[in-house]
Design a protein around this nucleic acid. Structure first.
Lengths: 121, 121, 121, 121
DNA sequence: GTGGTCTAGACCACG
DNA sequence: GTGGTCTAGACCACA
């Protein structure tokens, strides 16, 4: 369970964001499943040798985005998914994915190649 | 030609990045075509009521990323595209697009729906 | 560690470039080694009696060229070398070195003399 | 005789410097030989579609560096070489060539490879 | 008039 | 305390 998140201090991306995205990926890929407990702030902080405030911030944002929920005195748990609930987030993602795809096309990548990449997921 | 870029000062995204992304989109979508002159640093600065240094930073980054080139004494111009030149950027974009697509799927969007969005571009 | 870079305000070369080249030389000659911390932007600015923005520009370019990496809140560090990674830069350097050598030969310096200079490095 | 110099307006190098370096190369490579007349400022300006002042500046610098000499009313001519005369310039070139070679070595190019490049000149 | 450099000084995010 | 962004305003090289 531990060592599942990796942090790169050289990465310009803020550490709290690396932690957040790390958990998001684990949840999205199914490594962490609904209602599963994730490590406490202290455990993660010690494990990654990082300031607990930084982990705290990552957990807070994960909760705000609906990926986990915190129970005082119990810990933090993966939230169940409610398909198509967060339409605002879906719209945002679609806009982003369109932008990226357009840039790829501009850079010379053929549209079928892009689609085949997504098809393999 | 003017008023083509809009800036939102409340947006947490840095101003120079909003300017940069604005021009990138215009170039990618073909609104600005190769060798076309874009407004001078001072013109944009006045138009957007923003410090010239901020515009200059945006233009420099656009140049570094190959979207425009600057000629001292002449102005800034849209650079011609060299297909598949920037493989590093392409790889990066593909990783991002995969992440976004995975998140969309997790949120309940069906894969064919995602693909049809890209197909319409 | 301090006083390792010297700036000549009369030199037509921009200050930020003098700073950049100074650090590049220190890194290339091994005075600064991989992962070593270099002075903060503010320290260098005070030490050289130069505006922090100018130092920051030098550091940013050093980062863009792969000589250092910056970690917000931590400082700036010498980047590890990845041999033969930057082929574009290598090609550029070879062209320049060829031009210089040709000029030396034109000025009457014998080719073996030039080679012996390089051999001593 | 004409069309021997090519100018790239996109090149960040100033145009007058491109003209200067262009002639320098032609002289060094022997395409232009001692006492040969080079085109007048006006001819070059028209040929390259460039401001005559810019050509003027290039010619002035070429003269200052000893590559050509100007005769009022006659034109501009390639100067004869006096081997090993300009020791200051030679020393400068050697310093530059050492710097470039050190950077190449740092980037992972083997010293024999650099020497073989020079040997082929 | 164009972009390039530099200064002085402010505020912010991150850890 | 670190780097990142932004402003206001100055001077310079190039064409």
């Amino acid at each position: 369970m531990i060592n599942i998140i990796s942090i790169d201090l050289k990465n310009p991306k803020p550490i709290f964001e690396q932690v957040k995205d790390g958990f998001k990926n684990l949840i999205i890929c199914g490594v962490l499943s609904s209602e599963e407990k994730i490590p406490s702030v202290r455990e993660m902080a010690q494990e990654l040798a990082i300031n607990p405030n930084t982990i705290q911030k990552a957990y807070r944002e994960l909760e705000a985005e609906g990926y986990v929920y915190q129970v005082v005195g119990k810990g933090t748990f993966v939230a169940p998914v409610v398909p198509l609930e967060n339409q605002a987030r879906i719209d945002e993602l679609i806009l982003e994915i369109e932008d990226l795809a357009r840039e790829l096309i501009y850079l010379g990548v053929a549209k079928p190649d892009i689609i085949s990449i997504l098809d393999k997921l």
